[in-house]
């Protein structure tokens, strides 16, 4: 493979709270290559959003602090940049699409002027007419009808799906190298979700940006992602291609996510949800953070006291489980228990 566009290396992001220092992101590493989509999955509080906020330099300091690690964009460490240099990167090299299109547009400015602003900030030499033309092009690209009229409308005159399209237009306005989408469809109706994902795909094809897609929806991952990063308790627990993650997970947490999904295609006897609650980052379990909820660990000493390090299985394939070799048996057990088919290579052809 070519060199990664974006490379996150051993990132540690901490927050100082009244109850002590919280490591929201604890040694996270992953790469994004040009034109690919990396799906990041995990429960709330697993650190997936904090990771990308750190990449964008948008962690509020204080209480937040990036304590360690590197964020390399084409080899340049973003974390060493000055504020002004970082501002230049944001929106131009790395752009972000936020979760809730209802609140990510300023209610008192027209949608067009907000997209125009994204261009203006980085290319102040362009004339107003040229910017307007470009914005209308962008709006058309993301499928906003009557873009010329819609330019001058306010966010409340847009529906949720249209607003998210506008947000995508804003994000790709400067043809970024990295596009970060933080749960871009979570706040939308199911019927709109697929459309917005299509638009996102279009936008990505147009710019050939490497995309980081954060979601807790495995369906979205299956549809959009090339590779998957699974996060739990501020750490990366498994990485792999979509096929690998869905058909031969090497971490019991990933398997837990898969087996807690209702699947219309499979004749399920029952779901097997992950027991317990997502961990509190303030009081993270010792050893493997997942061990209190793990069906495979059986309270083994090693799981309770020794934090599993990343084990590289293959290029781009890694896990952070002491007993990943037992996963085949575990998958078999889950299949027997639920009637789901996970590893039988059922490539829906």
């Amino acid at each position: 493979m070519s060199d990664p566009l974006l490379s996150i290396r051993d990132l540690v992001t901490q927050f100082d709270t009244a109850d002590g220092t919280v490591r929201a992101v604890d040694g996270v590493s992953y790469d994004v290559y040009p034109g690919e989509t990396v799906g990041v999955v995990g429960e709330s509080g697993s650190g997936k959003s904090v990771t990308v906020m750190s990449v964008l330099g948008l962690i509020p300091e204080p209480p937040g602090r990036i304590a360690d690690g590197q964020v390399l964009l084409e080899g340049r460490d973003l974390l060493t940049l000055s504020d002004a240099e970082f501002r230049d990167v944001r929106g131009k090299d790395i752009a972000m699409i936020f979760q809730d299109p209802m609140t990510s547009l300023n209610p008192v400015l027209t949608v067009g002027s907000q997209i125009a602003e994204a261009i203006e900030v980085h290319r102040s030499h362009l004339s107003d007419d040229a910017i307007r033309k470009r914005v209308i092009e962008l709006l058309e690209l993301v499928g906003v009808p009557n873009a010329d009229d819609r330019f001058d409308q306010y966010p409340h005159e847009y529906s949720g799906g249209m607003r998210q399209r506008a947000m995508i237009a804003m994000a790709i306005a400067n043809e970024p190298k990295i596009l970060i989408a933080d749960e871009p469809t979570t706040a939308l109706d199911v019927t709109i979700q697929a459309q917005v994902l299509n638009v996102l795909q279009t936008a990505q094809d147009e710019t050939n940006a490497g995309t980081i897609l954060i979601t807790h929806d495995l369906g979205v991952i299956a549809e959009m992602a090339d590779r998957v990063v699974v996060m739990y308790g501020g750490r990366v627990v498994e990485t792999g291609t979509v096929d690998e993650i869905f058909h031969s997970p090497k971490h019991p947490y990933t398997l837990g996510l898969l087996s807690s999904l209702p699947r219309p295609d499979a004749d399920l006897e029952r779901l097997e949800p992950i027991p317990g609650q997502p961990p509190s980052l303030i009081n993270l379990p010792s050893g493997c953070a997942f061990h209190p909820r793990c069906r495979m660990g059986n309270d083994r000493q090693r799981c309770r006291f020794e934090t599993p390090e990343r084990i590289d299985l293959d290029a781009g394939r890694s896990t952070a489980c002491h007993y990943y070799e037992e996963m085949d048996a575990e998958i078999q057990r889950v299949q027997d228990a639920t009637g789901a088919e996970i590893s039988t290579e059922d490539e829906d052809a």
Partner: peptide
């Protein structure tokens, strides 16, 4: 703390 302020920041606004 509003998202649109974050969004403006993410666009590189000062």
């Amino acid at each position: 703390e509003k998202e649109f302020v974050q969004a403006a920041r993410a666009c590189g606004a000062g």
